[in-house]
Simulated assay, not measured.
Amino acid sequence: MDENDQLDAAFAALAHPARRAILAQLAKGTASVNTLAAPFDMSLPAVSKHIRVLENAGLISRERDAQFRLCTLQTKPLQDISNWTDQYRHIWDARFDVMDTLLKDMKDSDQ
């Protein structure tokens, strides 16, 4: 999978709130599939599908430890997303500077 395909897969995986919540849990440390499923009002097969999407996107890895399937967060795809978005940061910063100036002007005109 090339870099663009990897980014596409990562963004698609992050599009679902349950998958983002799973990643948030994994940011705290490795967890079993059952542990990841506990906070959700979903069946184990439904959570397993979300985990499979995350794994296919390279955002997590799974390994077997006795009878448990342990999931671990993989940070490289998240770093790739951060690097991609950073190239647009100057645009956001400029727009926020303009908005800040407008808000200050509005506040000054009210006084």
Rank of each mutant, 00 (worst) to 15 (best):
V53S: 02
V98P: 15
W92K: 15
P77W: 02
I91C: 05
G58A: 05
N56G: 04
Q79F: 09
D80K: 09
L73P: 00
E55C: 05
A57W: 04
A66Q: 09
R95S: 15
L54I: 04
I91D: 08
A57I: 01
N83Y: 12
K76W: 08
L73R: 03
D86L: 13
T101D: 14
P77N: 02
I91S: 06
R64W: 04
T85Q: 05
Y88C: 05
K76S: 06
G58R: 05
R52V: 13
L59T: 01
I60Q: 00
I91H: 12
C71M: 03
T101A: 13
Q67C: 12
Q67M: 15
R52I: 13
D65Y: 03
V98N: 15
R89F: 11
R52M: 11
D100M: 10
R89A: 08
F96W: 14
N56A: 13
F96Q: 15
K76H: 09
V53A: 02
F68G: 12
R95I: 11
R95N: 13
Q87E: 13
Q79P: 05
N56C: 13
L70C: 06
P77M: 01
Q87M: 11
R89I: 11
L78T: 01
D100P: 07
D93F: 11
A94S: 10
M99E: 14
T72N: 07
R69P: 04
T101K: 15
T101G: 15
L54S: 00
D80Y: 06
R69F: 10
F68I: 14
L78S: 02
C71N: 00
V53G: 00
